[in-house]
């Protein structure tokens, strides 16, 4: 088996007020995986991300990236290779033009200026926001800011990209744009972790789902395994995805054959129903 790209062992994190944030997290993340991280509010998803990125320092535990143990010295290596797109773009955007903003990461990597400009242009083209490269971020709309915050990370060429609740505060059109970007990134063999409360999205998109509850990982498996496990769903205050629910109801009423072929998207489901007619 291939060596996992990111290995986390026994990670403990305690907040400043003594509250436990992470309570022994073990996980292996393989290259190119599409992982959805779900769990109720305050379950430790964001804390986990910040720990993995080295922003928060864990009490104990080990993180190794491509087989190299992370310590204080090579922390920068970790941050360079793991990018986080924060939930609120306004908390991430720091510079006063879009161009300078996207360049912030590459500039911190101390790259030569030509390389920075090249990367910025690439990232802007990637997100299709070349038009407002000279605009200040405070005159952008919410969806545009989100695009800028994603371009920030693309410009850093991180191998693992973490999205912290990206679909929150996006209108359907922008959410669609986000999914397109995600599939584009997957084609480039990027490893993607997304925290979300949208179970329908997680079911449709993810290859693997990790469930957090009170600072622990309580389940880790394929979407189907997770969403059919009622105990896990109950413990983490989650609901079954609509599509799975509908499919199971139809099977129960013997309206469609129980072939155990679970449709992941509406399109597949519609085809399935047409066959029945």
């Amino acid at each position: 088996m291939k060596e996992p790209i990111l290995k986390v062992r026994d990670l403990y994190y305690v907040y400043g007020n003594g509250q436990i944030g992470l309570d022994g997290v073990d996980i292996d993340i393989n290259e190119g995986e599409k992982i959805a991280v779900i769990g109720s509010n305050g379950a430790g998803k964001s804390t986990f991300f910040l720990n993995v990125n080295g922003v928060l320092k864990a009490e104990s535990g080990e993180i190794s990236y491509r087989g190299t143990m992370i310590n204080k010295k090579n922390l920068k290596e970790l941050r360079k290779n793991i990018g986080i797109v924060f939930q609120d773009a306004d908390n991430q955007i720091i510079a006063s033009t879009v161009r300078a903003e996207v360049a912030f990461g590459p500039m911190n990597l101390k790259l030569p200026k030509e390389e920075v400009i090249k990367r910025v242009d690439e990232a802007l083209t990637y997100m299709d926001i070349m038009d407002f490269k000279d605009r200040p971020p405070h005159y952008l709309s919410g969806g545009e800011k989100k695009k800028v915050s994603i371009a920030d990370i693309i410009a850093m060429k991180s191998e693992i990209i973490i999205f912290d609740e990206p679909t929150v505060a996006l209108d359907p059109l922008n959410a669609e744009m986000l999914e397109e970007v995600l599939s584009k990134l997957s084609r480039e063999e990027k490893t993607i972790l997304i925290s979300t409360h949208d179970v329908d999205f997680a079911y449709r998109w993810a290859e693997r789902i990790i469930v957090f509850c009170q600072g622990k990982i309580i389940a880790d498996g394929s979407p189907l395994e997770i969403f059919q496990n009622e105990e896990v769903l109950k413990r983490s205050n989650l609901k079954q995805p609509m599509l799975l629910n509908v499919y199971e109801s139809l099977v129960e009423k013997h309206l469609i054959a129980d072939e155990k072929i679970y449709p992941r998207s509406i399109e597949v489901f519609q085809k399935m129903i047409q066959v029945i007619k």
Binding site: L50, G83, Q92, A103, G105, N108, D152, M156
Partner: peptide, 16 residues
């Protein structure tokens, strides 16, 4: 936090 996540190490430099 967001700045640290993008390799900020005490000096703010912007592309001009």
């Amino acid at each position: 936090d967001a700045m640290e996540a993008r390799c900020y190490d005490g000096e703010m430099i912007f592309l001009e």
